[in-house]
């Protein structure tokens, strides 16, 4: 499914915050045109890896390569035209409208005397349409629901027009319907616009359903990487998450579906007396 090429990846990465080492000697590659999802238990280093891949964290050893060059040798603006990131938390300035916020995604394409080109205008409109927030253009971001707000932030990242888009837990804090809405949106951006997506997700079943390439991490190591069908097995879930489970076919999509083992089989059969 994926040709062997990769514009973004890391080799022999050691990532640390101050003295605390998160990963050592980690090597990953993001296949081009994939929807890559990184999974793993809390504190396994998946968000740290995403920060390193997006140039926000400088590795203490090893290199992150973007188009064959060390990402830290490239100017920040040039990286921002190639690689977009939706961080876990962002701040919407008081009273900013949806259209204004999305427009800020054009920053890496603008200059002192090129503050708002027709191209900027067109891309912002397209980005809002692609994420279904065009109706909200003049609304204040403060007034929106969590799901709407997340779509606005994605629209801002789209307006950056980067072939690569990284998303750090884009579905956290959303209810289940909005989670699926955001993931459907991501899948559509991947399929229709041909962007390479990399997301950190918490929900294993979401990851298995939407990803074309999975990276499973534990304790700062990559335990397995590949297509969900080959990565998501009962053994791997037990190894990575320490969770006994069965893996069945998702009745909707045929992708792997993780069903955690019951606490004790008997309890599911005999309801407890009231």
């Amino acid at each position: 499914m994926h040709p062997g090429t990769s514009r973004l990846g890391g080799t022999a990465l050691t990532l640390a915050y101050d003295q605390r080492t998160i990963t050592e000697n980690l090597t990953v590659a993001v296949p081009d045109n994939s929807f890559t999802v990184i999974i793993g238990p809390n504190a396994c280093g998946k968000s740290t890896l995403l920060r390193a891949l997006s140039r926000m964290l400088r590795p203490s050893a090893g290199t992150v390569l973007l188009d064959g060059r060390d990402i830290h040798d490239l100017p920040a603006r040039k990286v921002a035209r190639t690689l977009g990131l939706l961080p876990q938390s962002s701040i919407a300035p008081d009273g900013i409208t949806v259209a204004e916020l999305v427009a800020r995604g054009r920053y890496p394409h603008q200059g002192l005397l090129r503050q708002w080109s027709r191209e900027d205008e067109r891309v912002v409109e397209e980005s809002m349409a692609a994420t279904g927030v065009d109706d909200l253009a003049d609304r204040s971001v403060d007034e929106l629901s969590g799901g709407q707000r997340q779509r606005v932030w994605i629209a801002m990242a789209l307006a950056q027009q980067t072939p690569l888009l990284l998303l750090d837990e884009p579905t956290t804090y959303l209810d289940i319907a909005h989670q699926i809405e955001i993931l459907d949106l991501c899948a559509r951006l991947h399929e229709e616009q041909g962007r390479t997506l990399v997301a950190v997700l918490h929900d294993l079943n979401h990851a298995a359903r939407y990803a074309t390439h999975l990276i499973a991490m534990r304790d700062g190591r990559v335990v397995a990487a590949g297509e969900p069908a080959s990565v998501v097995t009962a053994d791997l879930v037990a190894e990575v998450f320490g969770l006994p489970c069965r893996v069945i076919d998702d009745p909707e999509t045929g992708t792997p579906l993780v069903v955690p083992a019951a606490r004790r089989r008997a309890t599911t059969l005999a309801p407890e007396p009231a």
Partner: peptide, 20 residues
């Protein structure tokens, strides 16, 4: 000035937009 406007979105977002 223009970069400072981006800084209002949070350090992470500003950095993702290419602000050093």
């Amino acid at each position: 000035g223009p970069a400072l406007r981006m800084m209002e979105l949070g350090d992470d977002t500003a950095s993702a937009l290419g602000v050093p």
